[in-house]
Write a protein that binds this DNA or RNA. Sequence first.
DNA 1: GGCGTAATCCTGACACTGTCAAGATAAGAG
DNA 2: CTCTTATCTTGACAGTGTCAGGATTACGCC
Lengths: 193, 193
Amino acid sequence: MSSDDKPYHHGDLRAALLAAAEAELAERGIEAFSLRSVAKRAGVSHAAPAHHFGDAGGLLTALAAEGFRQFLAAQAAREAVAAGDPASQLVAAGLGYVDFAIARPTLFRLLWQSDRPDFTDADLGPAARAAYQHLVDQVMAAGGRTTADEAAVWAIAHGLADLLAAGRLRTVGTLPTDARDAMVAGIIRRALP
Amino acid sequence: MSSDDKPYHHGDLRAALLAAAEAELAERGIEAFSLRSVAKRAGVSHAAPAHHFGDAGGLLTALAAEGFRQFLAAQAAREAVAAGDPASQLVAAGLGYVDFAIARPTLFRLLWQSDRPDFTDADLGPAARAAYQHLVDQVMAAGGRTTADEAAVWAIAHGLADLLAAGRLRTVGTLPTDARDAMVAGIIRRALP
DNA sequence: GGCGTAATCCTGACACTGTCAAGATAAGAG
DNA sequence: CTCTTATCTTGACAGTGTCAGGATTACGCC
C-alpha cells in the first residue's frame, strides 16, 4: 500500500491515541479535552478509542499511568547526574519533580489535580503511589525521621512544581535555567531537618 | 405570594447562581461542572445565567473572584487570633491558606489550577493578586529578604494546601485538627530564613 | 492454499452540553 | 397609565460522550 493509504486497521492505534491525547491536552487544556478531537487527530472515527480504553476516563487513566512513569523518570534523570550522597539525591529528585511540571504542565495537572483518571485502576494506582513514594523514601535516606520531614519536603517540591506549572511564581519561573535550578535546590534544602 | 411560587423575576438570581455554582462544583467536581445543572439547581431556565454572567466562563470568573476574597478572609481569620509578631502572623496566614484548601477543595482548585476563569477580568485579576500578595508581604515583614524567601514560604504553604485538598498527604490530613495545625505551622516555619 | 473466529474500526443514534436569537414577563420612570 | 428597560423563557444549533450494530481485517487452524 502507498504511504498515504488509510488501512482499516491502524496498527498501533492505542499508542497513537495516547500521543494524540497528550497533544490535545497540551494544546486545549484539560478542561476542554475532547475525546472526539483526539480521535480526529489520530485519524480514526470518533468511536475508535472505545475499543482500547472503554471511555474517556479510561484513556485519561492510561495516559496518567504513563505520565507517572515519565514523572518518575524525570526524577531518575536528575539523580543520575547528581552526587551520590543522600541529600544530593533528594534534591535531585525534587529538581526532577519540578522539571516535569515545567516541561509538561498540563500532564502534571492531570496527574495531581484531576479527578477524571481512575486512581483505583490496577495500572494507575501503583504507578501513582510509586511516583511520590520515591520522594518520601529519599527523605528517610537523607536523614528524615518524622512524618513532618516527609510532608515538608513533599510539600515544598510539590508547591514549587505546581506554582511554576500554573505560571505563577514569575520571580522564579523567568530565571535562566541554572539560576532557577540553584534557587529550587536551595529552597528544597530548607525543608530538611 | 406563597412560599413555593415561582415569580418570573427571581429577585437576586445572581447571588443564587453563584451559590448554586459552588454547590455544583463541590458535588460534581470542576471537570463535570455544567451550566445547565447550575440553572436547574437555582430553579431557572438553562439560559438565565447568560444575562448575568455572559457565558460559563463568566460565571466561573465571578465565582473565582468571590473565592479569592474568601480565601483572603480565611487567612485574616487566623491572623486575628494569632500573636502579633510578624513571624506568628505569617504562620497564621499559612494556616488560613491551608484551612481554605481543606474546607473547600474544589473551589481551591478553581482558583489555582483551572484555566476557565478569566484572570484578566477587571474584578478577578486584582482579587487574585491580592490573595497571594498578602502572603508574600508577610514574608518580608517577618524578616524575609530575598525572592527565595518569598518563593519558599509560598511554595510550602501552597504545596501543603494543594496536597491536602487533593486528599494526598494522608499522614497529615487524617490528624486531629490541633495536631494538624501544629504540624503545618512547624513545616511553614522551616521555609523562613 | 482456504475457512472461521476474534479483534479492530466505522456508522448511526441518543441524551446532554454551551451558546445564540427571539419572544414573554415584570419592574420602574415619567 | 404608558413606555422603556431589565429580566427570564423557549426553541434552535453544533458539539460532546456513549452505546448498538455492522463492516473490515488479522490470525490460528485445517
